[in-house]
Write a protein that binds this DNA or RNA. Structure first.
Lengths: 256, 256
DNA sequence: GCCTTTATAGTCAACCTGACCATTGAGGGC
DNA sequence: GCCCTCAATGGTCAGGTTGACTATAAAGGC
């Protein structure tokens, strides 16, 4: 804030008090399908509908801290483990009537987790479930969560192009095949394997080969693949652009 | 929000009421220098310091609407004219102690305006001034506005690469030289003119030549330049990447 | 062993980029 | 009017990158 609209130490009557919450779009890639963590609502409004996990921002925490807390709760991970995950603010949703009960402003976050062995939450948040985003989800989400989810998904897809975000879906050590799988899943396109490999290896700081003689073979069927770790680069120069979808005769781009 | 933390229609004791404000980073390019609209604070805290314009979100409006209202007030433009400007949400700042007086959560926006003939506001917000971002601004901004401004500036620079954002700084009809000036000013680098021209004209939907026989000559010294209008494209494919700064031996990227 | 599968190496043409050089068409000075 | 300067515009060219493809290597299944 700043406004010179309100003179001294804020007259409490001069503004409406809002409830501030965080909503999380937590993604993972599982068996080549993008999944998001959703909870089934128990009570009205939108009883029975899927919703994004979230909760109130507490008096002494920032939205980022609240999001991290919720992420740990919802995934069943410890605070330390959760803080290693990729978590970024998406945007804030503030339509006056987005919640029928009262005025709620929500700061939305997007989070990426590797495919965890554990189903999801182990204790409190037993409601949380991974839901596949392959078109099988028919019912609309509660509140404006459908829009938030769509925005989050678009953002993730965009950021794969020019950041090392994709490795947020991967375990600490991974093969280039796994990394490529992430790109193909999120973008919904097939990529040429030799070209993907060349591009990734040619981008400085993107990945670095794991030392030792560690190769992966156990489960895999084909030739064992070399393991890589995330490099130091956060932004990719040059970016790894997704193939042009070229949706028939429309030379323009889409929404901002 | 969504949390199943709070049972029925929200117990008012269960959450802290926050004040919600918007803060605006309004940019323009003036004489090849990036400028931002700032106000001088009259009262404590931070009396005498520069601050971003902004104000409270009113009970019946969204943050976007509040930002548009403030933008119109601060620039002295009508609501209609202001709504033609580029205005986008940046992110939300919510540190518990970002405002010493009380808990204020602020949704920050970035706005772009062409170089207006009018100095800035004509009526109420006579305090607002365009301040050059050429390093001459010494004193730190009030609150966390210095950080907001830095974030906004970085975002603008980044989005110039892959969107048609730059034209938000240009009048409805402009020359390619003017457009290039925007890029050079925001990025702080010199670009090769023929190459810039080739790239812009080769990107579908970026710009379209203005009809008629309108050319610009009056003020200019050299050969008159052709006029262009913004094309339909919002995102650029492929992007117009800025030259690699290559800050000595650091192959990695910088912060997210 | 032979087949299937996946990783990895390499090739080649089309395209794009950055660095330049050349020409055009105004205005200014005299 | 003549020459000079300035900025716009039109080309060229080598090097790098991309996309499409072919070939080889190294596992596991049978």
């Amino acid at each position: 804030m700043t406004g010179n609209d309100i003179p001294e130490g804020y007259d409490p009557k001069a503004f409406e008090p809002f409830a501030v919450t965080v909503d999380l779009a937590v993604f993972t890639v599982r068996e080549a399908v993008l999944h998001v963590l959703l909870i089934r609502r128990g009570q009205a409004p939108y009883a029975g509908a899927w919703a994004l996990p979230g909760g109130f921002v507490l008096p002494d925490e920032s939205a980022e801290r609240a999001a991290l807390r919720e992420l740990a709760e919802e995934t069943g991970l410890s605070r330390e483990r959760a803080s290693g995950l990729h978590l970024e603010q998406l945007r804030t949703y503030s339509d006056p009537d987005r919640d029928p009960r009262m005025r709620v402003v929500s700061v939305a976050f997007a989070a990426l987790v590797p495919d965890l062995p554990e189903p999801s939450g182990g204790g409190d948040a037993a409601e949380a479930q991974w839901v596949a985003l392959d078109g099988s989800l028919r019912s609309p989400l509660a509140f404006d969560h459908g829009r938030i989810l769509a925005d989050a998904r678009r953002r993730i897809g965009d950021k794969l192009e020019y950041t090392s975000l994709a490795m947020g879906f991967c375990p600490p050590e991974f093969t280039l095949g796994e990394l490529q799988q992430v790109y193909e899943t999120v973008w919904g396109v097939a990529l040429d394997r030799p070209n993907f490999r060349r591009k990734v290896l040619a981008t400085p700081g993107f990945v670095e080969p794991v030392g030792g003689a560690a190769q992966r073979r156990t489960g895999g069927r084909g030739k064992p693949a070399a393991l890589y770790r995330a490099g130091r680069a956060v932004v990719l120069h040059p970016p790894l652009l997704r193939p042009v979808v070229d949706s028939a005769g429309d030379t323009s781009g889409e929404g901002a």
